[in-house]
Computed example of a mutant assay.
Amino acid sequence: MEIPPVVPPGRMSALPQTVLGLPDGWLLRPWEPYDAPALVASGTDPDIQHWNRTGRFTEARAEERIARYRANWEAEKAAIWAVAPAAGVPAAGLIGLADLDLPGGSGEILYWLLPAGRGSGVMAGAVARVSRWAFEELGLHRIRITHSVANPASCRIAEKTGFPLEGTMRGALLHADGWHDEHLHARLRTDGPVPT
Results as ranks from 00 to 15, higher is better:
Val89Glu: 15
Leu39Cys: 11
Pro30Leu: 03
Ile48Met: 05
Thr161Gln: 04
Leu138Asp: 00
Arg156Leu: 09
Ala14Asp: 08
Ser131Lys: 00
Glu108Gly: 11
Arg144Cys: 11
Arg189Asn: 02
Pro195Cys: 04
Ile157Thr: 15
Leu94Thr: 13
Leu27Asn: 00
Thr161Ile: 03
Met1Lys: 03
Trp112His: 14
Leu97Asp: 10
Glu74Gln: 14
Thr196Leu: 06
Pro103Gly: 06
Ala60Tyr: 07
Lys160Gly: 09
Gly107Tyr: 06
Ala84Met: 11
Glu159Arg: 06
Arg61His: 13
Met1Thr: 14
Trp26Leu: 01
Trp73Ile: 05
Glu2Pro: 15
Gly117Val: 15
Lys77Gly: 01
Ile48Cys: 07
Gly139Gln: 04
Arg68Asn: 09
Gly117Met: 04
Met12Phe: 08
Ala79Val: 14
Ile143Met: 13
Val40Lys: 06
Arg65Ala: 12
Ser120His: 12
Met123Ala: 07
Ala87Arg: 15
Gly25Ser: 07
Ala134Phe: 00
Pro195Thr: 13
Leu15Cys: 00
Val130Cys: 08
Trp81Ile: 12
Thr54Leu: 05
Val7Ser: 00
Ser120Glu: 01
Trp133His: 14
Pro33Val: 09
Val122Gly: 03
Gly121Arg: 09
Pro46Glu: 09
Arg29Gly: 03
Leu15Asn: 02
Arg170Asn: 10
Ala126Arg: 03
Gly121Asp: 02
Tyr34Asp: 12
Ser154Thr: 10
Met12Cys: 07
Phe135Tyr: 06
Met169Glu: 13
His180Phe: 02
Ala134Asp: 01
Trp73Asn: 07
Ala150Trp: 00
Gly192Gln: 05
Gly10Ile: 15
Gly105Cys: 10
Gly105Asp: 07
Arg118Ser: 09
Val122Ser: 04
His50Gln: 13
Gly93Phe: 09
Pro23Leu: 03
Ala92Ile: 05
